[in-house]
């Protein structure tokens, strides 16, 4: 497969204004700051991090649910620039090129629509030129592709189990023949025995359709199974990016190291050398000065508290003054 770059994000940032209430001061949350990455067709970039690290904000920006506050995003030949509204044709093309699957299949499917209607809705909105029968045919095709049966077309979401609903959500995302699929915690609401079915489906679809995945997850064992490259985020910034094997075998950022060691291993004979992280995630409203991780870091030194380490160049990039 040719290694064609399909998404290139440069210095993406997204800020939110938070009102301070009647007497407080309004302030800004930097949900996402200066995140850059590239994603190639047929490959998976996993984004990992804890709650509040900005991984879902990144998903919303890449899918253009929200515009970036700063930075540029090149997707499939189109450019999304902060501050410059897209023209209608570029927007339509991008809507079709990037699709998203959400975490909770119990919330993301309209309970009052049939599966057929749910699947056809994106086509109805984005491809009004397609006839009704063409839409229905495509919906049935997608049902088959995702391991569902054509007779499911007329049923309602409540008649399906969690795993089947997630298949429906994947089928809907594929209706517009996207090139990029943003998967926002696609299996974390599913039971273990169902999780593997959905992961296998995603692997198959990627092979058959050459999709690029932006795979957002907090579950490192799933990430290790699915990803080609991994980006670790902390408080809105990328702290480390590397290929999967590099990252899991020789993590360089103390946060990555701690995250890996905190993940429970399903092997009772495993000797865990757990790095204890004390404290909690700082509030994104009031990030600590210098490196955002410095209050919890075990390698912390004076310079970490005053200036922020930049992301190093190269293939294995790390934002740390004193890497492991």
């Amino acid at each position: 497969m040719s290694r064609s770059v399909i998404v290139e994000a440069r210095d993406l940032s997204r800020h939110y204004e938070v009102s301070g209430g009647l007497f407080g001061k309004a302030s800004t949350v930097q949900a996402l700051s200066n995140v850059s990455f590239t994603l190639e067709a047929g490959r998976t970039l996993a984004v990992v991090g804890e709650s509040g690290c900005g991984k879902s904000t990144l998903a919303r920006v890449v899918t253009m649910i929200e515009p970036p506050s700063e930075g540029t995003l090149h997707i499939d030949g189109h450019t999304v620039d902060a501050g410059e509204p897209l023209d209608a044709s570029a927007r339509a093309a991008l809507r079709a090129a990037v699709q998203i699957v959400f975490q909770n299949p119990f919330g993301s499917l309209n309970p009052r629509q049939t599966i057929g209607r749910i699947l056809e809705e994106p086509v109805l909105i984005n491809r009004p030129d397609l006839s009704k029968s063409a839409r229905a045919e495509r919906a049935r095709e997608m049902l088959e592709l995702t391991g569902l049966r054509p007779e499911h077309y007329d049923r309602y979401p409540h008649m399906f189990s969690g795993g089947q609903r997630q298949r429906i959500a994947v089928a809907r995302a594929l209706m517009l023949e996207p090139r990029i699929l943003v998967l926002d915690e696609p299996v974390s609401a599913l039971d273990l025995s169902i999780q593997s079915q959905v992961l296998n489906l995603l692997v198959d679809l990627q092979e058959r359709l050459g999709l690029a995945y932006l795979f957002i997850s907090h579950d490192l064992s799933v990430v290790r199974h699915m990803a080609d490259d991994v980006m670790v985020m902390y408080l809105g910034r990328a702290v480390e990016t590397a290929s999967r094997d590099e990252l899991f075998l020789s993590p360089k950022h103390p946060y990555t190291e701690a995250l890996l060691s905190a993940t429970p291993v399903a092997d009772p004979t495993h000797q865990s050398t757990r790095i204890r992280l004390t404290g909690e995630l700082p509030s994104p409203l009031d990030p600590p000065p210098g490196c955002a991780f410095n209050p919890r870091c075990r390698n912390v030194q004076a310079d970490c508290r005053t200036s922020r380490p930049p992301l190093s160049p190269g293939d294995h990039r790390v934002a740390c003054f004193h890497p492991v």
């Binding site: 273990l192 025995s193 999780q195 593997s196 079915q197 992961l199 296998n200 692997v203 064992s221 799933v222 290790r224 199974h225 699915m226 291993v265 399903a266 092997d267 009772p268 004979t269």
Partner: peptide
């Protein structure tokens, strides 16, 4: 220790095999 080393019920065995970290191939046992 015994459960992870030698599951006795086929369900336990299948559940353990479905763990992504125990996977040996791109496809997980389901």
């Amino acid at each position: 220790q015994a459960l992870f080393a030698e599951p006795r019920h086929p369900y336990t065995s299948a559940l353990l095999a479905a763990l992504p970290e125990r996977a040996t191939t791109r496809h997980l046992p389901t």
